[in-house]
Every structure is written in structure tokens, then in C-alpha cells.
Amino acid sequence: MEFKLILFYVLSAILVGSSLGVITSRNPVNAAMFLVLSFFTAGAVWMLAQAEFLAIVLILVYVGAVMVLFLFVVMMLDINFDRLRQGFWSYLPLGALIGILMILEMSIVLGGQYFQVLDTPLPPELANSSNTKDLGLLLYTQYTYPDQVAAAILLVAIIAAIILTYRGRKDTKRQVIADQVAVKAADRLRVVKMDAVKPQPAVTAAPESEAGDGAAK
């Protein structure tokens, strides 16, 4: 067996195992970390298929950004673990149905004769070139228009998400940056000239009281 094939099976085993971990772990933070592991292994599998750009971007975007936000949310929530378990058996048939549908779709795409994904050999000029550059060339020449449309949709989604969830509080306090930048030392600080030694009033106090203080200490 070729080394790459062994590597593929090892990575796939980790991927399947960590995906199972996502849906079986009791603690949502553990589940999120399993999801991170499965993204990472999926990236490694793609790397084996020489799709280095997609692999690294998967890690950069999903592991580096999306899952961090996920973890933020999961850690902040006070989740009742027992409530999460409720209704497992009633949702199982629906979930299983969706799972089977997905497997069917994948097998039609990958194994069937309609798409012929696996049978198409790679064009020889792709094998040795950087696929980052090739993807960039395609995206910004042939597919510029769909690419820009997708970007616009994402932008709308970002703004919509903020508008839908943002409820401005009435008592919000703000920093006025212009004032802070324009501030001078003299506005905040007053330098007071003082003598180094405090002028002592002519004391004729009795030395006994001082001695008494000293004893108290």
C-alpha cells in the first residue's frame, strides 16, 4: 500500500472519529473542539489531494475565525446539559433520513456515471503549478461577475445580521476620541510650585508629648 493511501485512511479515521465526537460529547466546548479537530483533519485530507489553497483557507477561515467565535458564544452561554439531551430519540429518525439523503447525493456525485468527477484526469498543466494562482486567475477573470455577486451577498448578510441583532441601549457611554486626542497636559495636570521644606511654625510644644507618642509607637 502506498504511503499516501495509509495517510489518507489514518486521517479519514481521525476525521470520522472527531465528527462523531462533535455530536456525542456532553460538553458543548468539547464538541466545538472536536469540530476544530475535524476541520483540521479535513484540511489535511484536502492537502493530500494537492488542493493546498483550499486546505489552508479551510483552516484559516473555519478554524482561525469561525470556530473562535463559536467557542466565544458556547463559553458565554450557561447551557443546561440535560435539556440538550431531551428529544434525542424523537429527532433521530429525521436526522437519520437527512444523513442517508446526504450519503446518497454524495455517492451519485462521486461514484455515478453522470458527473464523472473521479474519472476526469487532471490537466497536465495543473499538476505542477500553484493552485492558488490558478484559482485566483479563474476567479478574477472568467468568474468575476459571480464572485462579485457572492461578495455583495456576503456584505448584505453581514449588515443584516448586525441590524437584526443590534439593540442600541439608551444609556450607552461613548468615548469622544477627538477630545481625547486634543487634550493637553495642562488640561489634566496642574503643577504646583512648593518649597522643598515646609516652613515650620515656631513650636514651643512640650517635649513630653513627643516622648509619649514615641512610646505609643
Binding site: 466546548v29 473542539m33 476544530v36 493546498e52 489553497f53 489552508i56 483557507v57 483552516i59 484559516l60 478554524v63 482561525g64 475565525a65 473562535v68 467557542l71 466565544f72 463559553m75 500553484s130 492558488t132
Partner: peptide, 26 residues
């Protein structure tokens, strides 16, 4: 000497954050 070295560095520097978050939470 990989072609996507810069991307690799970016991806790894974004992964380093997990140690911090997990340490704080756990």
C-alpha cells in the same frame, strides 16, 4: 519550501488563539 508558505503562516498564527481561549475557560 511550499508554494503557499505565506498562507501557511497566516493559518497557523490564527490557530494559536485556541490555547489562550481554552486556558481561560477551562
Amino acid at each position: 519550501d511550499i508554494d503557499a508558505g505565506l498562507l501557511f503562516v497566516l493559518a497557523l498564527s490564527s490557530v494559536g488563539i485556541y490555547g489562550v481561549i481554552l486556558a481561560g475557560w477551562s
